[in-house]
């Protein structure tokens, strides 16, 4: 069986219905808005990340609360003391 002949017949059939060559126009609109949009998104992310304050600021209430916590001593603290407590200090 000569496959070449079979394929030649199919090729002839399909060749007759080949659409005309249509050069695809370049897609300028896509590039025109996609790239600036991507650049803007990246810029916005960078701005948000770098614009955030890098150090923490405490209000007076925060400081008062921290002082109160530091000064607090539990009532049962003495129970945890052992005879040797304070010797090495």
């Amino acid at each position: 069986m000569n496959l070449q002949e079979w394929f030649a017949e199919l090729r002839e059939e399909e060749e007759r219905r080949t659409p005309l060559y249509r050069a695809a126009p370049p897609s300028p609109y896509r590039l025109n808005w996609l790239r600036p949009l991507a650049a803007f998104v990246v810029f916005a992310i960078v701005l948000i990340v770098t614009g955030r304050p890098s150090h923490v600021t405490f209000t007076n209430e925060d400081r008062a609360a921290a002082r109160a916590i530091a000064q607090w001593r539990p009532q049962t603290d003495f129970l945890l003391r052992m005879p040797s407590t304070g010797v090495s200090r």
Partner: peptide, 29 residues
């Protein structure tokens, strides 16, 4: 496809594995 042989060929090609079909199309077609 109106040709009998072309139609038969298409039916035959359809029953092959994709890779086999692709190689045969590239070589014979």
């Amino acid at each position: 496809i109106h040709g009998e042989r072309a139609a038969a060929l298409l039916r035959g090609l359809k029953r092959l594995a994709r890779r086999q079909r692709e190689v045969l199309e590239l070589v014979f077609y």
